[in-house]
Design a protein around this nucleic acid. Structure first.
Lengths: 352, 352
DNA sequence: ATGAAAGCGCTAACAG
DNA sequence: CTGTTAGCGCTTTCAT
């Protein structure tokens, strides 16, 4: 079945001007609420606008004004359960200010990141919210020289050149490990994220420092390097079980690995939390729904996305390129996976 | 800390022309690979481009060419676990063709949908991939008259005016219910989606028709209307248990409600699948990770997103506005939640 | 208070 | 093969 495309596609400011019997300058003024417009002409113009169903051409406006009213949002992967909330927060904040969001998935690949940055620059985006992968150190430096405001969520950017929304991963790890220790666990296995990731480094540091603080030994045999995937958590604990290492708790550097770890435990008929307690990181929705539900360190993704875009817009409208930073603090969410039977019920500990 | 913004923001085709000692037309020709260009000038121009780090201004190009090389992606909510895969599929397909994707979350609210459609139109997007909520009937009709190609995932659009990627919800429901019946279940409760949603209507029809086919009675007391949320599945089954209705299986019109239902069952110490078998719909990742894992009807979200954008791009480059349709077929994924102990192991049934 | 006209950066006739 | 020029739709001086 075919039908011809609607033809009166483009009604421009010129058509409105002609219909209303005024100049295009007048139409423009009225549309943009500029000063000095006679009531009468305004009425005629508005009538013409309604009648013709005129919609301003944002592309022409962008060319003239040199701002596109759109921002680029560069993330590793929207399918990673951490990002949907963040993206939603970012989008809500952007829309509220009339900005379009261009979504870019890079899989954390530095080459793709670079391609997308060039693409966005060419598209004349007014700002970029950049969340890189573990290889993006080089791109971060390049971004700092881009003549477009950039906000990142990466701590490494805090070289004083790039604005950032940061999260205290170190403190978060401390919260997690202290919780395990205080509920009586002593031999804590650790599943780290990728060694080069800055968030991962901070979480590892928090883990080590807390063990030190409580004079517990750091046992290398209980430490694994994962890649934040379900599978790497599963493999780590499977290996641990096969080697018959002794441990009574696990701290996983994110929730997906924690859930993978639980899978390995359950397959070996090890009970959670009775035999092994486990705490994750991020508080993705699955942490709540999983059986057993997962104790975790919450990262407020929606709010961070929102804050990042707010910061970006602030930078875009200021001429002095001040480098901003906003810090979010972790919060421990206690659920079933660390419940001490018989022990007094832990309450949700809020760390401000 | 402050530092002045990099100043040489805008290097234009003019600068390249001057540096290379040619006219802007020549630069444009070389950049766009047009015919007849002397090797020598091409080399000079490319050198200038590299040296000045010239990047074409896509906004100016869009104004001139009357196409923006961007498409709008309107969805209810990226936080709904069904959408991330679909969005990723759409984005991958778009990027491959050099299109930017503008993401728009509407919460299925018709007013927001309309606002976003106007916004995208104003932005001169070359096409729109529209996934509406239950109230969007009116917007669907409006979209059909928009002078911009539109592809939707809504069956209701199949009035012959809007191209669509569709999914056979009816057949999917049949697969689910037949599976329950063939594994020996007879009193099947049904948690429907919202009554006005077209996918929901089809799934309900599949449920009823299959019971009929096997001469099983449709018991109104075992039928509930949910809203696709975890909570509505939970509430439905909680009510069923409190009323002490007798049933041996549940078909939930999506996975989130199925998982909510399981929660209610477990709270009442009813075992899944031993006492009650349950099958969901969509095959979100959680269906795989949940304990017990959930038998469900798979909807290939990534592929559908990809196909929808491919279809959109095809429409954009064709002058005859042919109305296209591509259909995806359901596939039953059998997991723990319907396992019959003692019975022969079900294998993954693939319906082509 | 309103209109005429320049120009944002680019592509594509049109001329030579 | 290369350059000159018009014009995409809009905002904004600069006149009037």
């Amino acid at each position: 079945m075919e039908h011809t495309k609607s033809t009166n596609t483009n009604v421009t400011i010129k058509d409105v001007a002609r219909t209303a019997g005024v100049s295009i300058a007048t139409v423009s003024r009225i549309l943009n609420g500029s000063a000095g417009v006679s009531e009468e002409l305004a009425a005629r113009v508005n009538a013409a606008v309604d009648m013709l169903e005129y919609r301003p051409n944002a592309v022409a406006r962008a060319l003239k004004e040199r701002k596109s009213r759109s921002i680029g949002l560069v993330i590793p992967d929207i399918e990673n359960p951490f990002f949907p909330s963040l993206v939603r927060g970012a989008e809500d904040a952007a829309r509220q200010q009339g900005y379009a969001v261009i979504l870019c998935n890079t899989d954390g690949n530095a080459v793709e990141e670079d391609r997308y940055i060039q693409f966005l620059f060419s598209k004349q985006v007014d700002g970029i919210l950049f969340i890189g992968g573990i290889e993006s150190q080089g791109n971060l430096e390049m971004l700092a020289d881009l003549p477009v405001p950039v906000v990142t969520l990466d701590r490494r950017a805090a070289t004083g050149k790039l604005s950032a929304v940061v999260y205290d991963n170190y403190q978060g790890a401390i919260l997690a490990v202290e919780h395990l220790i205080k509920t009586g666990r002593k031999k804590i296995a650790f599943i780290s994220g990728p060694l080069k990731s800055s968030s991962s480094i901070d979480r590892r540091r928090g883990f080590n420092d807390t063990l030190d603080k409580f004079s517990l030994p750091v046992n290398e045999k209980l430490t694994f390097v994962g890649n934040y995937s379900f599978d790497s958590g599963y493999q780590a604990i499977k290996e641990l079980i096969e080697k018959k290492e002794s441990f009574d708790a696990i701290f996983a550097a994110n929730d997906m690995m924690a859930i993978g770890a639980i899978e390995a435990l359950l397959e070996a008929s090890i009970r959670v939390p009775e035999d092994i307690a486990i705490v994750g990181f991020d508080d993705i929705r699955l942490a709540f729904w999983h059986k057993p539900s997962l104790t975790t360190v919450r990262q407020p993704a929606y709010e961070m996305g929102q804050a990042a875009v707010a910061m970006l817009i602030k930078q875009m409208s200021s001429t002095s390129a001040e480098v901003l930073e906003q810090k979010f603090l972790p919060e421990l969410i206690v659920r079933k996976s660390t419940e001490n039977q018989g022990a007094e019920h832990e309450t949700k500990a809020i760390r401000e």
